[in-house]
Computed example of a mutant assay.
Amino acid sequence: MNAVALKKFVEENQKLALECSNLLAACNKWERECSLYDHDREALMDFANEADERAKEAEMRNFDLEEEKKKLEEELNFYKFRSERQMDEVSTDDLHEEQILLDALLTAMFGKDETTSTANSFLEAHSGVEECHKLLKMWTSLKPLTQKVLALAAEAKNLEKDKDHLTINLHRAEEEVNVLFEENNILNEENKRLIRLCHREKHISGSGGGSLSGKGKRKSSPKLSSPVEKKIDFGNLDPQRQPLSPLQSNSPESRMRKK
């Protein structure tokens, strides 16, 4: 009985030792888990503290921006009120005088009949534009100053067209100058060649006459055909040139000639 009891006691001790080792391993594992948990908790606490500080800074920044916004709104209202007051200070008499001066200036530039016809023609020519079409419908109710402004716009449009035509004419004239310059060079070279041939003919004629007089014989020298008498065909040197673009009939120069 003692041996059986001893064996059983040994087995129980072995089981208890195994359980103790398992418990120690589990304890070590849970200690590591607790350590990691403490580390994470500290990191979260630091992050929360940093977030609180940023929130306080953002709140202070928001407060400063609100104050700055109020100041800017006050300045805006002040300048708006000041601008409105300055506009109210402009009297209607000044505006009326400005219109009178502008009307007098345009009247001096355009005659009354010329203003009406020019403005009407301008609107009819540009009736495809919506604004011009509406003004053409309102023609009978348009103010004289408006008609003069339209005449001024028509004059500006005509001057722009004249400028385009003058630019085209200038380019074509430059091309013709280049062509004439090339033709002149060709003619100069041909002239030099003919002069050399003429001198050569004179030299041959002079030397031939001297030899005949030395021998005492008077024979008529054969008539040499001079290259100068040959017909030179320069027809292929004249290229077809385009005519210059005509200017508008209502250009400032044409109006001056009419007057």
Rank of each mutant, 00 (worst) to 15 (best):
D88R: 09
A55E: 07
F110P: 02
D52A: 15
M109V: 08
A125E: 15
M87T: 02
M87D: 09
D64G: 00
S35W: 01
N120M: 12
N49Y: 05
F63V: 04
D52K: 15
E75F: 06
A104E: 14
E57N: 11
R82G: 06
E50Q: 14
F81L: 12
E57A: 14
S121K: 14
E67W: 02
T115L: 03
N22M: 07
S83N: 10
S83C: 08
C34P: 00
H39E: 12
R61F: 03
Q99S: 09
V90R: 15
S117W: 03
T107Y: 03
E66C: 11
T116V: 14
D94F: 12
K112G: 00
E42R: 00
L106K: 02
A125C: 07
K80S: 12
Y79V: 15
L36C: 05
T92I: 07
L101E: 10
L95C: 10
N62F: 11
T116Y: 03
N62K: 13
E53S: 15
L101T: 07
M87Q: 12
V90T: 15
F78T: 12
F47M: 05
V90G: 11
E53P: 04
L102F: 06
T92P: 02
K69I: 05
E84F: 05
F47D: 06
E75N: 09
K71F: 06
L95T: 10
A104C: 09
D38L: 06
A26K: 09
A43E: 03
N120H: 14
L105F: 01
T107E: 07
Y37P: 00
S121M: 15
E31N: 13
K80M: 08
E67V: 07
E59R: 12
E50I: 08
K29G: 06
L23F: 04
E84Q: 14
E66H: 09
K70Y: 03
R41F: 07
R85W: 03
D40C: 05
L44T: 02
A125Y: 10
D46E: 08
F63S: 10
E97L: 14
F47S: 11
A51I: 08
S117E: 11
D88P: 01
K56N: 10
K29W: 04
D46Y: 01
S117V: 14
R32Q: 15
